[in-house]
Design a protein around this nucleic acid. Structure first.
Length: 846
DNA sequence: AGCACGCCGACT
DNA sequence: GTCGGCGTGCTC
């Protein structure tokens, strides 16, 4: 006898542990580690995941209930993924169930549906159903309303509570009474959100010889049916044939086919089909290119552990255009030859059609694609393609790291420095760490690729100090096509202002744009507005439209012509006059892309601009469409935010202009310089990738800043050397790790007290364990608590927010300590309104 | 998270 | 006397 340990889908602290269930004999072959099951839990049925099968040990069976149903034929998770989820729950201080849940498509997040049926246990000795119902009603002395309900249910044998309340709006009392008296019974079952997509398919019900005979003797008046049957017999190798195919090929209606069904010659059934988001698209097949010497050297190194089926981590540091993708492609090729599968992670923002094309072009239908723009159903189907072995390569954003491959050989993470690899909701995991951990346990190779590696990864590679994360550094310092990196000019905007140029375009950029227009070459203009948004301000009194629930200014959206709160979704129309002083001098602030677009139109009449930002790319496929238009030379300028900086490759782009390089530099974020350097380097890499030489113009108000200087010199090494020094002195990653604890409550004074309490609890525990201390001291183990302070957004949805930051280093369980402190505080006060959120290694500090 | 159990105020 | 308010505690 075995019992199943199940994690139930109830995300609360008290329930976030395994519960034991009996496995009914009939399910013995279906219940595995990773199975999704429906189990009775308290007074209802919930979904859960089997995390282990244990021999039945003690006498603890007295209250053990059996598993009610197994929800999938193939378990959605593997033992390997279950183990990974458990690791995540510790590493990211999240619930086990939350980690499990993030691994499967939301389509499989089933909820219990209640069914009402007649409880026949007392009277079921009678065969005749109708007689049974009458007897049943008499025996139980039911009233008229109750009798109506009973017959309604008897007709359908089983109804959902929703159906019932629709038919009998006021049935609650009667229903309760019937249930109480045991005349009706309630069953629950887990129902998936997503339906599998099916099509009608026709198959032969008899042998093709028999069918041919029938065709030969078919009555002449049923000529259409004869045609259809002949068509089906002719398609014998492709059965079942889709109903649609028959209808369009022979111009018949479905009735014709149905008469054949009635005669018993053919069958008509629903067949499951996979939705293919890339259906009907053709991918130009590509063949492996010859690797140059740098690429070859990197490839050979990667092959060492890969060919030995051993785990290994590489940091592939290659300048923009050095041909990293070709190294990825050929490594995947090798991995597939070993009959293993590969995951390619790309930042959401660069999951462009161009990117997908390259992988589909090389590996065709073996490639599954996963990103947030797919519909729930599409994502579910791509996921099933992977689980059922129909795909061997997945190209996807962050969550693709959980792709249900059974024999994973390679995980590639392109642009490994991108912050979008960190999930901002629970589980707040970083796909890089998860990838490394998953590869460790499955003996796979990880390639982290970037032109501007994150300081954490680069430091780990250089120092080789962390036994769990010591990437091997592979350098590719030159461009694959032999062309040199573009010349970069920094323009001092203060100088421009002194010379009387108050436009957003410097004289150099202006001249450069004019020359491209004359030469009919294309340009990319980048507006780095991280941390900025267009807000509405009154010039008369300085009033700024803000959200009443959150302490943040409302963002102007041109498309819907309203003001929206970024955090809670509140929207209001744009005021015509100032609500404070009545002045009409109300206007939009912040250098939005729309304003640049207007300015371009004014300065360069006839210029064709494609604007790419959150406003123009919300619709499905719009991103793709805009890029295609630009690629087809329907515009001179591609203007946009970060999203124009990543991974695009257009041969005719010879000018890249950065309108304001330093708008992100002054943000209160210790990574500001790193982010600026990375963005400038990335966008500069868009210019002159092919035969035409490229030019880059960076406009800045702080041109002497080291991130701007080194970006203009394409000098990663000098930049990191300088940045490492800053981080070391100020005690920031990679020289320590961070934990951000954010607390929130509706009442400010209460929150303040709790926040103080939290800080001192953490400090106290650290002191007890001998860890507490200033990081300046040279001890290997140290933990310091900063704060509490108000969060950068001090109020969201009418809840005040305070935070404290923990800095720690060494071989100590700081995460456990913080979690323990949070639980202690939660226990000490029974206030559900008090919320604590823990973010391990936060990326967003604002 | 739900849902029931349980112990104190305003109604037929 | 009961209906019902939401505090508290449990779920294999």
């Amino acid at each position: 006898m075995q019992i199943a340990k199940v994690i139930v889908d109830v995300p609360a602290r008290g329930t976030d542990r395994p519960f034991d269930y009996l496995i009914p004999e009939s399910m013995r072959d279906w219940v595995e580690v990773g199975s999704r099951v429906g189990v009775p839990f308290g007074h209802r049925t919930v979904q859960g995941f089997v995390i282990s099968l244990d021999p039945q040990s003690q006498t603890e069976t007295f209250k053990m209930k059996p598993i009610q149903e197994v929800l999938d034929i193939i378990p959605p998770l593997s033992p390997e993924l279950v183990e990974l989820a458990q690791w995540m729950s510790r590493e990211y201080a999240c619930r086990f169930i939350t980690a499990l849940q993030v691994m499967i498509p939301t389509a499989l997040k089933g909820k219990a549906e209640r069914y009402i049926s007649i409880n026949h246990s007392d009277v079921d000795q009678h065969e005749d159903i109708e007689y049974r119902e009458t007897l049943f009603a008499e025996v139980s002395s039911v009233n008229k309303e109750e009798q109506d309900i009973i017959s309604f249910i008897a007709q359908k044998s089983e109804v959902t509570t929703q159906q019932l309340s629709k038919a009998f709006p006021e049935c609650a009392v009667a229903l309760k009474s019937l249930l109480k008296r045991g005349l009706l019974q309630e069953n629950q079952s887990i129902k998936d959100k997503m339906q599998k997509k099916t099509i009608k398919g026709v198959n032969l019900a008899i042998s093709s010889e028999a069918a041919q005979e029938i065709i030969d003797q078919f009555p002449a008046k049923a000529a259409r049916q004869k045609e259809v049957l002949q068509f089906i017999v002719d398609s014998i190798d492709f059965l079942p044939v889709a109903m649609k195919t028959i209808m369009s090929a022979l111009q018949v209606s479905s009735g014709t086919v149905k008469s054949l069904v009635e005669k018993g010659y053919v069958t008509l059934d629903d067949y499951e089909v996979l939705r293919d988001p890339y259906k009907g698209r053709h991918f130009k097949p590509t063949t492996p290119l010859t690797l140059n010497e740098e690429q070859r050297r990197a490839y050979d190194q990667i092959m060492n552990p890969l060919n030995a089926y051993k785990h290994g981590v590489f940091l592939l540091h290659g300048v923009t255009g050095s041909g990293k993708t070709e190294v990825y492609l050929q490594s995947i090729q090798r991995c597939l030859e070993q009959d293993r599968q590969a995951v390619v992670l790309v930042p959401e923002i660069s999951l462009t059609p161009q990117m997908v094309d390259r992988f589909k072009g090389r590996f065709g239908d073996l490639v599954a694609v996963m990103h947030s723009r797919l519909s729930g159903g599409e994502r579910y189907d791509e996921w099933r393609k992977i689980r059922e072995g129909k795909a061997s390569v997945v190209v996807g954003a962050r969550s693709a790291v959980f792709a249900p491959f059974s024999n994973l050989g390679l995980i590639i993470m392109d642009e490994e420095h991108e912050t979008s690899y960190k999930q901002e909701e629970s589980p707040k995991y970083h796909a890089r760490n998860v990838a490394v951990r998953r590869a460790q346990s499955s003996g796979a190779v990880v390639i982290l690729g970037s032109a501007t590696p994150s300081l954490e990864t680069y430091h780990a590679a250089k120092s080789q100090a962390n036994p769990d994360f010591s990437p091997w550094l592979l350098e590719m310092p030159t461009r694959a096509l032999g062309n040199k990196l573009p010349d970069v000019e920094i323009v001092d905007m203060r100088e421009e202002l002194r010379e009387g140029n108050r436009s957003m375009f410097s004289r150099s950029l202006h001249a450069a744009i004019v020359s491209r227009l004359e030469k009919k070459e294309q340009m990319v203009l980048l507006l780095n507005r991280r941390g900025y948004s267009t807000f509405v301000m009154c010039r008369g009194c300085g009033y700024v439209a803000g959200c009443s629930e959150c302490d943040i200014s409302l963002t102007f959206h041109q498309k819907s012509n309203n003001l929206r709160c970024h955090y809670c979704g509140y929207a209001e129309p744009v005021p015509q006059v100032c609500p404070e002083c009545g002045s009409e001098h109300i206007r939009y602030f912040g250098t939005g892309t729309q304003r640049v677009e207007e300015e371009l139109a004014k300065l360069f009449p006839g210029i064709r601009v494609i604007r790419m930002d959150v406003d123009t790319t919300t619709e499905k496929g719009s991103h793709e469409k805009l890029l295609k238009q630009f690629g087809d030379r329907q515009a001179d300028v591609l203007l946009g935010t970060q999203m124009v900086a990543k991974g695009l490759d257009f041969p005719d782009v010879t000018l890249v202009g950065v309108i304001t390089a330093d708008s992100a530099l002054n943000l209160p974020d210790f990574r500001a310089a790193e982010k600026t350097f990375q963005l400038l380097t990335q966008v500069a890499g868009r210019a002159g990738r092919h035969h035409l030489p490229g030019e880059v113009l960076i406009q800045s108000y702080t041109p002497e800043h080291y991130s701007i200087i080194h970006a203009s010199g394409h000098d990663y090494t000098s930049f990191v050397r300088e940045e490492f020094n800053h981080r070391r002195v100020l005690h920031y990653p990679p020289y320590c790790r961070l934990i951000l604890v954010t607390m929130s409550h509706e009442q400010l004074p209460l929150l303040l007290r709790m926040a103080e309490n939290m800080t001192s609890t953490i400090q106290g525990k650290a002191r007890q364990r001998g860890w507490f201390g200033n990081l300046d001291r040279l001890t290997p183990d140290a933990l310091d608590v900063l704060g509490p302070v108000a969060s950068p957004i001090p109020r969201i949805k009418n809840r005040y927010r305070f935070q404290c930051m923990i800095k720690w280093r060494g071989n100590i369980d700081a995460i456990g300590l913080v979690l323990e402190s949070a639980e202690q505080i939660e226990d000490s006060l029974h206030d559900k309104n008090f919320q604590i959120s823990i973010d391990i290694d936060p990326q967003m500090l604002m």
